[in-house]
Amino acid sequence: MTQQPFVGRGAIDLSALKRPAPQQAPTGAGGDAKPGAPVSAYAVAVDEQNFQSVLQSSTTAPVVLVFHSPSQAPESSQMADDVADIVGQYDGRFLVGIVDVDAVPQIAQVIAQASQLPQLPVPLLMVFLDGRPAIQPIPGMVSRDELSTLFNELGQQLTAQGITGRHQPLAGAPAESDEDEEDGPDPRYAPAQDALAAGDIDGAVAEYQKLVDSNPADAEAAAGLAMAKVLQRTQGVDLDAARAAAAADPDDVDAQTMVADLDLLGGHVDDAFARLIELVRRTSDKDRDRTREHLLALFAAVGNEDPRVLKGRQALASALF
């Protein structure tokens, strides 16, 4: 699934809700689990009382709203469970608000009006940052594999943009096991992430390089280093000028790899891969080697388990042989 980068849009007008929303932090729902109910420490059932505070949490880190309806589309409740479960693996990079439109139709009406829709489609997935939709809403059923790909890409975009905030686990959320508690954010990555948050790209590259040098098998550090180097290469680059240069000379390795880097940062992962794979087909010797090595670095930045990387590797093998 190709995902668009974070973009600023209009804030949601909450005035249509009948009851004012208190300002306390959102809390998880207790009781027995049921389809569409919170299933992690970073998921909350949304109602009129906590809707505003859930959205306000997006000033810390992105908030994902999942709209489901047990009566209209029973399968949508399973999708809500999948989103909550997947997001729970990101240690607070996202918070999920689960909206049962049967129980709180007013919230669905507010979102439909803000989106200029006659009726809200169900299921629907939205991502908010700083109180505003951050990506185009995603209507309809999305498979678990596609959801995993989506959040992997969003997590990479957060890192690329230096957005490193995390939500705190919700009070009243399902208890975590001791093993889960030990799997919190690894402090080894904090210096690099702090450097990114401060806009110090060179510092982030240096910190990730230290981690890779000390443990070449550290896949997360390798991915972080690869993405930080993309940011480093593209600092101060004019997108229009870069595209013009690439269009003027399709076989210029420097020009083509620069646009591929910019495409990757813009969320156009498949386009970035396709550009360099075609360049591999057209070039030879040192130019081909440089292009291939650059493409492999972009594979590492996206993550070797990403389906687009697996597809890209197959295409690269075909281009080489």
Results as ranks from 00 to 15, higher is better:
residue 29 A to K: 00
residue 283 T to K: 14
residue 27 T to K: 00
residue 37 A to L: 02
residue 4 Q to R: 11
residue 228 A to H: 01
residue 139 P to H: 03
residue 87 V to W: 01
residue 76 S to L: 01
residue 234 T to V: 15
residue 312 G to F: 02
residue 210 K to Y: 04
residue 235 Q to E: 11
residue 128 F to Y: 15
residue 20 P to A: 02
residue 94 F to H: 03
residue 207 E to A: 15
residue 224 G to V: 06
residue 293 E to S: 07
residue 38 P to E: 04
residue 25 A to M: 02
residue 314 Q to G: 09
residue 125 L to S: 11
residue 210 K to V: 12
residue 112 A to D: 05
residue 25 A to D: 02
residue 103 A to V: 10
residue 140 G to F: 08
residue 55 L to A: 11
residue 233 R to F: 05
residue 217 A to S: 14
residue 223 A to L: 05
residue 230 V to Q: 09
residue 106 Q to V: 01
residue 145 D to M: 05
residue 10 G to Q: 06
residue 48 E to K: 11
residue 169 P to L: 03
residue 220 E to S: 13
residue 194 D to Y: 03
residue 57 S to K: 11
residue 212 V to K: 14
residue 237 V to G: 03
residue 300 A to F: 06
residue 121 P to D: 14
residue 186 D to H: 07
residue 1 M to L: 09
residue 55 L to Q: 11
residue 232 Q to P: 05
residue 54 V to W: 06
residue 257 T to A: 13
residue 75 E to R: 03
residue 231 L to T: 01
residue 57 S to T: 03
residue 90 Y to E: 02
residue 203 G to Q: 10
residue 84 A to F: 02
residue 253 V to R: 14
residue 43 A to F: 00
residue 86 I to Q: 08
residue 56 Q to S: 12
residue 177 S to N: 03
residue 101 V to M: 13
residue 180 D to K: 06
residue 78 Q to I: 04
residue 235 Q to N: 06
residue 143 S to V: 01
residue 253 V to L: 13
residue 146 E to A: 10
residue 86 I to V: 13
residue 6 F to C: 05
residue 102 D to Q: 07
residue 311 K to T: 05
residue 283 T to C: 05
residue 281 R to I: 08
residue 111 I to Q: 13
residue 306 D to H: 15
residue 299 F to K: 12
residue 140 G to I: 06
residue 157 Q to T: 11
residue 108 A to M: 09
residue 46 V to L: 02
residue 254 D to E: 15
residue 193 Q to C: 00
residue 302 V to H: 06
residue 294 H to K: 12
residue 276 L to E: 05
residue 201 I to K: 09
residue 164 T to Q: 12
residue 147 L to H: 02
residue 71 S to I: 05
residue 167 H to N: 04
residue 5 P to C: 00
residue 195 A to I: 00
residue 242 A to W: 13
residue 300 A to L: 09
residue 29 A to C: 00
residue 224 G to S: 10
residue 188 R to W: 07
residue 120 L to V: 02
residue 89 Q to C: 02
residue 211 L to P: 03
residue 162 G to P: 02
residue 260 A to H: 10
residue 154 L to E: 06
residue 287 D to P: 14
residue 47 D to R: 06
residue 268 H to K: 15
residue 251 D to M: 03
residue 115 S to M: 14
residue 97 G to N: 10
residue 34 K to D: 07
residue 311 K to I: 01
residue 136 Q to F: 13
residue 301 A to Q: 11
